[in-house]
C-alpha cells in the first residue's frame, strides 16, 4: 500500500529511563495510554502521517532506551534525525538534571540543526512535581529549545509536541535554513513532492527524443 506524503522526517525520542518516552509515542500513534508498559531495550518504532501547514509529513519515530548504559548503542541511531523530543519527568529532578547530556548527544551526533522540543512529561502528577515550569522554560530558552509540559496519560500536549516540532522543521525548510537535499538532514522527499520535483527534470531529459504520441 503506497502512502503519499510530501516529506519524511526522522524523529528521535530521547531522555532518561522511566520518563514515559514509549508512552508518549504510544499516545501519539494510538491515541491512548499504554497501560502495561515494558521498558524499551534498544529501540522501538512508530510512524504516522500528519498534516502540517498544508503539507503531508510522514514522521518516522525512533523511540530509544533510556538507561545510561545503553547510550553507546542508542547513539548510533541519532544520525540523520531531523527532530527530537527530549523528555524528562516533572516528578524527578534526576531526569531533569541529565537533560544537558542528552542534548549534547543530539546536537553532536544527529546534526547541529536538529530541532528539539523539550517535554516535561507526567504533567498529570502535579502534586509530586519536583521541577517547576519556570525553571524548565528557562533551560529551554537558554538552549534554544521549544518547550511543553505533556501528559502521556491524559494525552495533553502530546500531539502538539510532535506537530510543533514538525512545523518548525517545515518552516526552516521554507526559509532555506534547512536543506532537505543535504546528506543526513533527516528529511526525505515523499512520493508526492518527488513527482513535482522530478517532472521538470525528466521533461528535459525526454524532450530530445521523438515522442510517440
Amino acid at each position: 500500500m503506497a502512502e503519499t506524503y510530501d516529506f519524511l522526517f526522522k524523529f528521535l525520542v530521547i531522555g532518561s529511563a522511566g520518563t514515559g518516552k514509549s508512552c508518549l509515542l504510544h499516545q501519539f500513534i494510538e491515541n491512548k495510554f499504554k497501560q502495561d508498559s515494558n521498558h524499551t531495550i534498544g529501540v522501538e518504532f512508530g510512524s504516522r502521517v500528519v498534516n502540517v501547514g498544508g503539507k503531508t509529513v510522514k514522521l518516522q519515530i525512533w523511540d530509544t532506551a533510556g538507561q545510561e548504559r545503553f547510550r553507546s548503542v542508542t547513539r548510533s541511531y541519532y544520525r540523520g534525525a531531523a527532530g527530537a523530543l527530549l523528555v524528562y519527568d516533572i516528578t524527578s529532578r534526576e531526569t531533569y538534571n541529565s537533560l544537558a547530556a542528552w542534548l549534547t548527544d543530539a546536537r553532536t551526533l544527529a546534526s547541529p540543526n536538529i530541532v528539539v522540543i523539550l517535554c516535561g512529561n507526567k504533567k498529570d502528577l502535579d502534586p509530586e512535581r519536583e521541577v517547576t515550569f519556570l525553571e524548565a522554560s528557562r533551560f529551554a530558552q537558554e538552549n534554544e529549545l521549544m518547550f511543553l509540559e505533556t501528559s502521556a496519560l491524559t494525552g495533553e500536549n502530546v500531539e502538539e509536541a510532535f506537530l510543533k516540532c514538525a512545523r518548525t522543521i517545515l518552516n526552516k525548510i521554507d526559509s532555506g535554513e534547512l536543506d532537505p537535499e543535504r546528506m543526513g538532514s533527516g528529511i526525505q522527499y515523499g512520493d508526492a513532492s518527488l513527482r513535482q520535483l522530478r517532472q521538470p527534470r525528466s521533461a528535459q531529459a525526454v524532450a530530445p527524443q521523438p515522442c510517440g504520441c
Partner: peptide, 17 residues
C-alpha cells in the same frame, strides 16, 4: 542509587500483564 531506583522501576515493568 540510580541503579537501585531503576531496578524498582523496571520490576514494575517486567511482564506487567
Amino acid at each position: 542509587e540510580a541503579s537501585l531506583e531503576l531496578i524498582k522501576l523496571d520490576i514494575s515493568r517486567t511482564f506487567p500483564n
